[in-house]
Design a protein around this nucleic acid. Structure first.
Lengths: 145, 145
DNA sequence: TATTGACTTAAAGTCCACTTTAAGTTGTAA
DNA sequence: TTACAACTTAAAGTGGACTTTAAGTCAATA
């Protein structure tokens, strides 16, 4: 029976695979201060389950449009403790607001794309007006521009 | 009474404003073959309402994730006539499929971001468990990772 | 008529987020 | 023990989509 339960660790390559990044990307993120790696006796990085959770969370934030420099700011505030919670909250809420605006925009782009696809399908099957301009089609579908 | 009804035309600057781009961007798009500009006697570009519609449509396609080179391909096929409709349709449907996949991904990112915001708000107001880890909070909310 | 702003071109520069290279060290399997 | 994959660093390179610069021409207003 062991007195000390040693936590599972991962080399940078294993870690990279686990979070779907590459080893150079992990090093890049570390160089940007987004994460910190522990080192073994010969100077090699190793990572733990907690690091996996952290990177996955970072990737979620990144996926909502936060830049590396936004993330850096977030990380800096996090390291400063609970008194920066209002700052972090504001940053995240701004990110959310920006995201939602873009989200609505791309939704509209998708509508137009879908309309165009349907217009082509109609044209292809010759079902209706083979000559109906796309602009008229959009109008008929209740979309503008 | 005029025999010839002259269509309204726009300089590149006016045109750029109308489609919310810059004049250099318009020139860049023209250089990439995404649009063609007519020229007046002194060699200056001018544009019409039809060009506005076309660029706006291009921007919708671009907004769904099509790259300049995708758009170039689309434009090339369009110029070749109706026998390339299946090609165009396939391109647009692939674009749509890729878009929808990304769309679902960012939706998940947004959920995590929103959860984090709510977690911070809870922490701030001290309403519930000021010490509850975010991972536990996510679990409680029915989200993973 | 003079000035100013808008246009013209080709080419170089920018930004972001990595990615690749180069040169060297270390750990592991045969 | 020898090979070979994986690690280390710093620095340079990449890709996409513009943006900026430079040097010059043209059009409209005071």
């Amino acid at each position: 029976m062991q007195a000390i339960k040693t936590e599972a660790t991962y080399t940078i390559g294993e870690f990279a695979d686990l979070v779907n990044l590459t080893a150079p990307t992990i090093r890049y993120y570390e160089s940007q201060g987004l994460l910190k790696a522990r080192r073994n006796d010969s100077g090699r990085r190793y990572f733990t389950a907690a690091d996996i959770k952290w990177v996955k969370f970072l990737l979620h934030l990144k996926g909502t449009g936060m830049s590396i420099s936004d993330l850096k700011q977030y990380v800096t505030w996090r390291a400063m403790g609970d008194e920066t919670i209002p700052n972090r909250l504001e940053l995240l809420e701004n990110t959310q607001a920006d995201f939602l605006e873009k989200y609505r925009e791309v939704q509209h782009h998708l509508e137009i794309l879908t309309d165009k696809i349907n217009w082509y399908k109609q044209k292809e099957t010759g079902k209706t007006s083979g000559q109906e301009p796309f602009a008229d089609y959009l109008k008929r579908m209740g979309h503008k521009e």
